[in-house]
């Protein structure tokens, strides 16, 4: 009898000990962060960038928008807003809807930058429409960028790897670059009061990831890659046949953003 209670007591003690250990370990697991960069577990989308010394001059990135594949879902706009927490009514990228009637008149609309998608056809037009298409717009990453030339404080510039970015610590918010951009991709951030623009997700590209809008595009209408890598999709498209255009060529800005299937009316 005595012996059995002793065993029972010991059992109870070890049981309580085990429960306590489990509780402490479990709660510690919740409190202490698992650590490590979540990025390490995610496969790189652009080969040969991650964990390599970045050579500024060895990259030549290009962006291709395939208008024939764009369905105007607006996922790129949503992704862009989420990636940068862009304030409402400002857009780093947006999707325009073009309608062309039989007299070649062009009607363009872009409700909320395409952020809510296009749920309804245009009802305010009485004319028969012969052509409808969506045109995603973003920074053209001009090789001869007008916006960087006009900045009085050196806050916007072209990096040696070809990205036009804004140094928000130096920007004084004069808005000169917003006036200078022929593609209207710049805006004054109402929160920080500095100029902001699409950067082709420079921070993602440097980590070997595709820009947020390219990653979410369900139809592959947006393509991004390095032209110096002969195996990349963009260099294959740009070195192959097919009509490839840039916006406002006559401005002499030499954009790195190319369009497939853009009608001549697209500006």
């Amino acid at each position: 009898m005595k012996n059995s209670t002793k065993i029972l007591d010991e059992d109870r003690r070890s049981f309580i000990k085990k429960v306590l250990k489990g509780t402490i370990a479990g709660s510690l697991l919740l409190v202490i962060p698992a650590g490590g960069n979540a990025l390490e577990d995610i496969p790189a989308q652009i080969p040969g960038i991650r964990d390599k010394e970045w050579d500024m001059s060895k990259k030549r990135f290009a962006f291709i928008v395939d208008i024939t594949r764009c369905i105007g879902c607006g996922s790129c706009c949503v992704a862009d807003k989420r990636e940068y927490n862009v304030p409402d009514h400002n857009y780093r990228t947006w999707v325009e809807r073009y309608l062309k009637d039989f007299d070649d008149n062009i009607y363009v609309d872009c409700p909320n930058g395409g952020l809510d998608g296009y749920q309804k056809p245009r009802e305010d037009l009485d004319v028969p429409i012969r052509d409808t298409f969506f045109v995603p717009k973003l920074c053209n990453m001009c090789k001869d960028a007008p916006c960087t030339q006009v900045c009085p404080v050196g806050a916007t510039f072209t990096t040696p790897d070809g990205f036009v970015i804004v140094d928000s610590k130096r920007c004084v918010g004069c808005g000169y670059c917003i006036q200078a951009c022929p593609y209207s991709v710049r805006f004054l951030n109402p929160v920080t009061k500095t100029a902001e623009k699409c950067t082709w997700c420079y921070h993602r590209v440097r980590k070997g990831m595709l820009p947020a809008c390219v990653n979410v595009c369900p139809t592959g209408a947006r393509k991004f890659g390095d032209l110096n890598d002969k195996e990349s999709e963009v260099s294959k498209i740009l070195s192959g046949p097919g009509v490839i255009t840039v916006l406002k060529k006559e401005m002499g800005t030499d954009p790195s953003l190319y369009y497939i299937g853009a009608r001549r009316e697209v500006i």
């Binding site: 989308q45 510039f157 610590k169 130096r170 420079y202 980590k207």
Partner: peptide
């Protein structure tokens, strides 16, 4: 004619969409 450190500052911006 710009601050070279701004390049790394932009490159170190945290990613919000993780694929």
């Amino acid at each position: 004619h710009y601050r070279a450190d701004a390049i790394m500052e932009e490159a170190n911006r945290p990613m919000r969409l993780m694929t």
